[in-house]
Simulated scan of single mutants.
Amino acid sequence: MLKDKIIFLTGGTEGIGLECAKAYLRSGAKLSIISNNTDSIKEAESTLSGNEVLFILADVSIFEEVEQAIVTTIKRFGKINIIHNNAGISNPSKALHDTDDEEWNHLFNVNVKGIYNTTKAGLSELKKTKGNVLNTGSLVGEIGQEIHAAYSATKGAVNALTKSMALDYAPFGIRVNSIAPAGVWTPMLRKWSAEQPNSHVIDSYLANIHALGYCPEGDVVADACVFLVSEQARFITGCIMPVSGGAELGYRRYADI
C-alpha cells in the first residue's frame, strides 16, 4: 500500500510511533524517524534496521532542528510523501490550576508547535509529491479528561488544526487527517497509570472504558494509520478518526468499575 513512499515520522521510536514504523515498513515505505531521545533511538535501531530507515536526533519543538531533519531526509531519500506528526507527551497529570507555566508550555510546544514546525519545514516537499499529513491526536481532544487539562487542550488544538490544515492545503492536493485513540498500552501509558491516584484499578478501568472490552496495543492504531496515509484514503481529508474500541460512546468513571 505504501511502496516507494517516504514517510517523515516524529516520535517513531517507541509506543504507537514504533508500531506505525513497523507497519509502514511492512507496507513498503521508507522512513525518516525523528526522536529527541538517544537511548530510544538505539533501542529502535535494534528493531528497525536496514536502508529503509533513517534515524535523526531532533526536538520537534525547535524549528531549526526540524528544518535540518527535513533537509537530511531529502538528501537521503530525495522526497517526502507523508509527514506523520506522532511525537507527543501527556504529563503532567494535573488539573489546570495545578499546572505551572513550564509544564503548560512544554506540552503545547511538543504536541502542537511540533506540527507547526514540521508543516512549515516540509510543506514545499509535500506540494511536490501531493502528499499528506497525519497527526496523532487523542479521543480526549473531543471529550476531555479528568486531571489532564493541558494535555486535553493540546489534543483539542490538534483536532482544530487538522481541519484547518485540510482546508488550507486541499488546493495543493495535500490531505490532512488525524488519528484519535483512547487507551493504548504504550510505555507512556504505563508510566501514566503508575502516577494515577487509583493506580491499582487502572488496568480494569482502561479495559472497561472501551466498549469492545479491552485496552489494545499500538498495532491497532498503526493499521488505521497505514490506511489513512495510503491511496485507499485518497478522498478522505479533515477526518479525526477514532480508533478507540467505542470509548467515545461514553467513558466510565473510576467509581463505575
Rank of each mutant, 00 (worst) to 15 (best):
A222Y: 04
A150I: 09
A255C: 06
A121P: 04
S199K: 15
Q232R: 12
A194H: 06
K94E: 13
R190Q: 11
E142H: 11
L189P: 02
L167S: 12
I257V: 13
G141Q: 04
I16E: 03
T154R: 05
G28T: 07
M188L: 14
G141F: 04
E195R: 11
A166G: 11
L126Y: 00
L9S: 03
I236Q: 09
I80L: 11
L212I: 15
K191Y: 01
A150V: 10
L139V: 09
N208V: 08
G17E: 02
K75A: 14
G88A: 05
G12L: 01
A23H: 03
L96R: 05
K42I: 00
S46N: 14
N36E: 01
T186I: 12
W104L: 15
T99H: 11
Y169R: 14
G250L: 09
V176H: 08
S27V: 01
K163C: 12
T10M: 02
V243E: 06
A153F: 01
N132K: 10
E248D: 11
I82H: 08
L18R: 03
S204M: 07
K22W: 01
T162D: 14
F108N: 07
Y24P: 10
R253I: 04
L126P: 10
V66L: 09
L167D: 10
I174K: 06
G173Y: 01
S49G: 05
E125F: 00
A149Q: 10
T162S: 15
E248A: 08
R252D: 07
R234H: 07
E52W: 03
N51P: 09
N198M: 13
L212Q: 12
S49Q: 11
L2H: 08
C239Q: 11
F63Q: 10
T186G: 14
I147G: 06
F235P: 00
G156A: 15
P187K: 11
P171S: 12
M165N: 13
G144I: 11
A157R: 07
S164R: 14
A29I: 01
G28D: 06
G12E: 01
H210K: 14
I34K: 01
V112A: 03
A222D: 10
A69R: 03
K5T: 07
Q145I: 13
L139P: 03
N91P: 06
L249S: 14
G114E: 02
A149K: 07
W104M: 12
T154Y: 02
P216F: 04
L212A: 12
I257Y: 00
E195F: 01
N51Y: 00
F8K: 06
E19Y: 01
T119S: 11
H210L: 14
I240Y: 03
T72D: 14
G78I: 09
A194Y: 04
K3C: 13
I16Y: 02
D100N: 15
K5C: 07
G250M: 09
S46V: 00
I70F: 00
I147H: 10
Q196N: 07
G114A: 09
R234V: 03
M165L: 15
N117V: 05
V220H: 02
S244P: 02
S35D: 07
E65L: 12
E195C: 04
P242K: 08
S204P: 03
L54S: 07
V140W: 05
N85T: 07
F55W: 00
F63R: 11
T119L: 10
I6M: 08
Q232P: 02
